[in-house]
Design a protein around this nucleic acid. Structure first.
Lengths: 208, 208
DNA sequence: GTTAATGACTAATAGGCGTTAGTATAACCC
DNA sequence: GGGTTATACTAACGCCTATTAGTCATTAAC
């Protein structure tokens, strides 16, 4: 792709700095409530200069989404090959939690898209959600259904995914009431502890 | 539950119809991405006519929030008086799920506020989230901590609340992949089944 | 050393935004 | 019936929006 011999932090290209700024702003306010003037302001250039790097606002948004999707879909891809085991689901869940914790922007962008639509929403579903449910069917095929009720299973997949993402998207609402930074290390460990506990409880639960 | 003497559709005041329209639109797009022109359009009047009923955009938004908060805080108020039991938590959860299912707009508005801020956000936290954690402390005081680890308890409260709300806010992302309307009656029953199962599993779970 | 391309800039467009002022019409009170 | 109130309207404002055109300096190619 591009060869950069020196460290990339000060030498980030303008396009990358635009993408970084746009990602944060789109994630915070959503597509239509984010103005190109805001983006340009963060980067430190004038608004029309953005058009030297991206065709228009929608293309910039698309580029932001694409970069995020690529960086987030690797844990699931590793899974999709083989048959799924209990431990693999555990691992995938932990990886996903840590990933969303490290960069909350994809969850935020997804939440905005789910609420308000906006460009590329269908593509978003296809590339992020559809594969998740293909994998979940693989568990079913394995012989041991995740739950007592098998047709509850996709709902469980949805629930756990929502759990991970809503932690990120709702965090500001709880940070006061929990008395600590939701994106700090201790909070991450507590969240992991809880979600693993929930998953184990679900696996161990049989009818009733 | 509610007594409707006459059919309320034609006899609603203009202010109420504005509130209805604004609620849907704010819930869908958030505060800043919703225009007063959109609201007026749905109601069927011209934009400046809105100012005969509400001081400005922010006041309209505030009125929408207030109406929703009032109608949603009753299940929790019933709980706060007495000591909390397992069955009461169960009941509260079911009530809350049904309520958000019947009107998803509060969850959507909350999600927008958590992501993007906007007016009245602090008030929103105080009136909706703070009471929930006061109640949860009452369980702790009761002698039987909800979880093996007691300082995990507010995190569990947050998790279950997120579970209920994210179902509503993320529903459009899953409706295709689940193959049914997320706000239909069968979907509601499945969601209830799953969430009750999760709660029971948490209650029964002891260490490990 | 000229040429070509890159990427910043200013200026300007058309349309949408929230909001205000002023006006007209219908329904009420006494 | 005259006066008051409520509620709709049109016209207009200043600001913000995405986008385009055109200009100029720096950089890379041959």
């Amino acid at each position: 792709m591009e060869e950069k011999l020196v460290e990339n932090q000060p030498s980030r290209t303008t396009s990358e700095r635009i993408l970084d700024a746009a990602e944060d702003l789109f994630a915070a306010a959503g597509y239509s409530a984010t103005s190109l003037a805001d983006v340009a302001d963060v980067v430190g250039i004038r608004t029309p200069s953005l058009y030297n790097h991206f065709r228009n606002k929608e293309a910039l948004y698309g580029a932001v989404l694409d970069r995020l999707i690529v960086s987030f879909s690797s844990p699931l891809e590793e899974l999709e090959q083989n048959q799924l085991t209990y431990e693999q689901v555990f691992e995938w869940l932990e990886k996903t939690v840590r990933q969303h914790h490290a960069n909350p922007n994809l969850a935020r962008l997804l939440q905005h898209a789910a609420l308000s639509g906006g460009p590329h929403t269908d593509e978003l579903i296809d590339r992020l959600f559809r594969p998740m449910f293909n994998s979940s069917q693989a568990i079913e095929g394995g012989g041991t259904p995740l739950l007592g009720d098998t047709d509850l299973q996709p709902w469980a997949v949805m629930a756990f995914n929502n759990l991970v993402m809503s932690y990120v998207t709702m965090a500001p609402m709880y940070s006061d009431v929990l008395g600590q930074d939701p994106f700090g290390e201790p909070a991450l460990e507590r969240q992991l502890k809880l979600i693993k506990m929930l998953l184990r409880a679900v696996f161990e639960y049989k009818g009733g």
